[in-house]
Structures are given as structure tokens and as C-alpha cells.
Amino acid sequence: MSALGLYRARGHGIAPGDLAHCRAVIRTGSLSFHTASRVLPAAVRDPALALYAFCRLSDDEVDEGGNKAQAVLGLGRRLDAVYAGAPGDTPEDRAFAAIVARYKMPRALPEALLEGLAWDAEERRYESLADLNAYSARVASAVGAMMCVLMGVRDAHALARACDLGVAMQLTNIARDVGEDARAGRIYLPLQWLREAGIDPEAFMADPTPHPEIRAMVARLLGEARKLYLRSEAGVPRLPRRARTGIYAARFIYAGIGAELRRQGHDSITLRARTGKLQKLGWLGKSAAYAAGSALMPQPATLFAPPLPETAFLVDAVAERDGRAPGWGIGRTGALLQTLADLKAQDAMGGQQGRRA
């Protein structure tokens, strides 16, 4: 039986009301993914909507909450409950628990996402592009790897290319949001790049302006993303046939944001790159054409490129090797435990200072 046939036979186990809630969350909160998801087969689209709704809720709670440390620690407790089979009483948690159980989602993947959110709560900055890739692996490639699990894909080469796509999409997001992040007191541009340009991060955040040097950094991020977008295409033919259009669509829609940034002179401080409905329809058509032709194309050598060093742990968490699948419930890396411990200490210190005040 094919992977998609297996999905139909089993179903995804998500309650209809919870799925409707997740669909509404994505429709209002993530237009790019909502557009791409419309051309996924229902057997993949429905659990993908539940996955993205849970990830979106998690991201929003950390980004928008008054106490980021508490938000991350709360997410850790919710994840524990999901893997214990006793999710919290929210549609996102119940839907996510259903797909964790149905698809045996390796715990290392949502825990990688949680670690990335913890880095956000710490307001961590990134010294180098490699460090930024490590962050992108956690907040974006982990989701791409989870999508592969939903599609029944555990091939190491396909997983590596899915992780490439995740990093490319996150680098595009960072390039688009330089000004918005700076005004919110955040900076994701590699500190090495800023030092080389003679730009002080604190001064830039206090007065974000589209200096030529900052525009050059935006262009550099987009260049890195473009290489990964191109490499990611090699993995799409290894996905279930009916899912390929949707994944190509995600690739082209997000790359289109980068194209808009280039058209506005790489100014992501005074301008915000936006794409329109007609553009998205065009990319959907292009995606369908690519998907139709993918079965006829020979496998490119880039399919077999090793994963980025920063995403290799995600591939290892999912890939079947020598006929053995990794333990789906194993997680809690030492790095994550240390990050959560640091957040607990940070939150406790903040509470003590508040009481003294």
C-alpha cells in the first residue's frame, strides 16, 4: 500500500472541531502556508494544519507573552503532557497529541522547536551564519522534518533537503523582518557581519536605518537562502506524488518574498516585502508544473549532498537506517535541559527582583 493509501486507511485521529479551529488559526495567522497547504492532499493537509497551528501557537506565546521564560516552560510542560497521552484542554494540544500518537512523531523534533523558542526567550544573539543556521534548524527545519513524518518519509536524503528548505525559509523571514525585529529590541543578523561593517548592534536597534551595509547583509542572507532553495528541490520527488505541488508551492512562495526584497533594494527597514494573490496563484501554477515533471527528471547530484551540520541531528532523529527506525518517544537532550534550567533560573531571579522592588 502506498504512503497516501496508508494515511487514508488509518485517518489522522483529529477531532473535526479541533481541526476546524486549527484551519482557522492558519488562515488568519500564516497566509503563505495556508496558500501552499490548499494544494496538499487532504490526508497530508489536515495533520499539517494541526502541526502548524500548534507551532504557531507556541511561537506566538513566546513572542507576544509578557513573560517569555514562563511561556517556554509552560510549553515544555504541555509537550510532556502530549507525549504522556494526556494533552491540555485546547484544540491545538489535542490535535497535536493526535498526530504525535498516529504518526509516532519523534520527540526530538518538537523539542528542537522548543529549544529554538527558548533561545528567543533568552533573547540570544548569533555570532556567525552557522549559529544562525542552528537557530533556523530548530524553529523551521524541525517543522520540515515533522512534515516529512506526516508524509511517511524517513529517507535521509529527502529529510536533509527538507531541512535545507526550512533554513532557507527562516533566513528569508529574518531578512524580511530586520527593521521590525530591531524596533522590538531583537537582532538576528550575525554579530560578525555587524562588526565587519562597523555597526554597533545597540545603536542600530535604537535607530534602525537602511544603511548600505545593512542592505548588503539582507542581500547576503537572501543569497544563502537561494542556494538552499535550489538544493531543496532535489528532495521533493522523493515525497508522495500528490504532496509535491504543496511543497514546491511553499518553496516558491517564500522565495518570492526574497524576490520582493531584492526589488525594493534590500530595504527591509522602511519597507515590508509583501506578495499578492495573483503572484501566489502564479507560483501555485509553477508548482503544479514542477510536480508533474518531477517524476520524469533524473535524480540530481544535490539530492545526495550531506545535510547542513546544523540540521544533521534532525535527520538522525527521523531517518531509518539499516532497517531500524529511531525511538519516537526519545528526547530531552542535555542542551535543552540546560536551556530550560537557565530559563527557570532567569525567571526566578526576575521574580525575586520584582518582590524586592
Results as ranks from 00 to 15, higher is better:
Lys277Asp: 12
Leu278Trp: 13
Val143Phe: 02
Cys22Val: 02
Gly354Leu: 15
Ala168Trp: 00
Leu221His: 04
Tyr290Trp: 11
Ala175Gly: 05
Val153Ile: 14
Arg242Gln: 13
Leu228Trp: 01
Glu64Arg: 10
Ile247Gly: 00
Ala53Asn: 02
Leu129Trp: 11
Val72Lys: 00
Thr302Lys: 03
Ile14Cys: 02
Pro306Gly: 14
Arg355Thr: 12
Leu222Trp: 09
His12Cys: 14
Arg274Cys: 07
Trp328Tyr: 15
Ala225Asp: 07
Ala219Gln: 07
Gly166Cys: 05
Ala168Tyr: 08
Lys286Pro: 00
Ala305Ile: 03
Ser287Phe: 04
Leu165Phe: 09
Glu224Val: 11
Pro212His: 09
Lys68Thr: 01
Leu314Lys: 04
Phe313Asn: 01
Ala348Asp: 13
Asp155Val: 05
Pro110His: 10
Ala9Arg: 14
Ala335Gln: 13
Ile199Glu: 05
Leu114His: 03
Leu19Tyr: 09
Glu233Lys: 04
Leu189Ala: 05
Glu123Thr: 09
Lys68Asn: 01
Asp60Tyr: 07
Lys104Ile: 00
Ala97Phe: 05
Ser37His: 07
Val167Gln: 01
Gly11Lys: 09
Thr245Asn: 01
Met297Thr: 11
Pro208Ser: 07
Gln264Asp: 09
Phe54Asp: 00
Tyr188Asn: 05
Cys22Gln: 04
Ala69Lys: 00
Gly88Phe: 07
Pro201Ala: 09
Ala317Lys: 02
His266Trp: 10
His211Arg: 15
Ala42Thr: 13
Pro106Trp: 12
Arg242His: 12
Ala301Gly: 07
Ser58Asn: 14
Gly329Trp: 12
Ser2Val: 08
Arg138Glu: 11
Arg262Asn: 05
Tyr52Phe: 12
Ala295Phe: 07
Ala48Tyr: 02
Leu79Asn: 01
Asp267Pro: 12
Ala182Ile: 03
Ala3Gln: 09
Ala118Cys: 14
Ala243Trp: 09
Val167Trp: 04
Asp46Leu: 07
Met105Ala: 09
Ala156Phe: 05
Arg107Pro: 08
Met349Asn: 03
Ala197Trp: 08
Ala288Gln: 06
Asp322Phe: 08
Gly198Gln: 08
Met105Pro: 02
Met349Tyr: 06
Ala48Gln: 02
Leu221Met: 13
Cys148Pro: 00
Gly276Met: 06
Gln192Arg: 14
Arg94Ile: 11
Ser128Pro: 08
Leu343Asn: 01
Leu51Ile: 08
Lys280Val: 14
Leu281Arg: 15
Leu261Ile: 04
Lys286Thr: 04
Arg138Leu: 13
Gly179Ser: 12
Asp63Glu: 11
Gly354Phe: 13
Asp181His: 01
Gly198Glu: 10
Ile99Met: 02
Leu129Ser: 03
Leu132Asn: 03
Ala305Tyr: 06
Leu314Trp: 08
Ala130Cys: 03
Ala84Lys: 10
Lys286His: 10
Ser30Glu: 06
Ala140Thr: 03
Lys280Gly: 02
Tyr7Lys: 12
Leu31Cys: 01
Ala289Asn: 01
Leu191Gly: 06
Gly29Thr: 05
Ala250His: 03
Asp207Glu: 15
Ala243Asn: 04
Leu343Ala: 07
Ala259Phe: 06
Ala325Gly: 02
Ala36Ile: 01
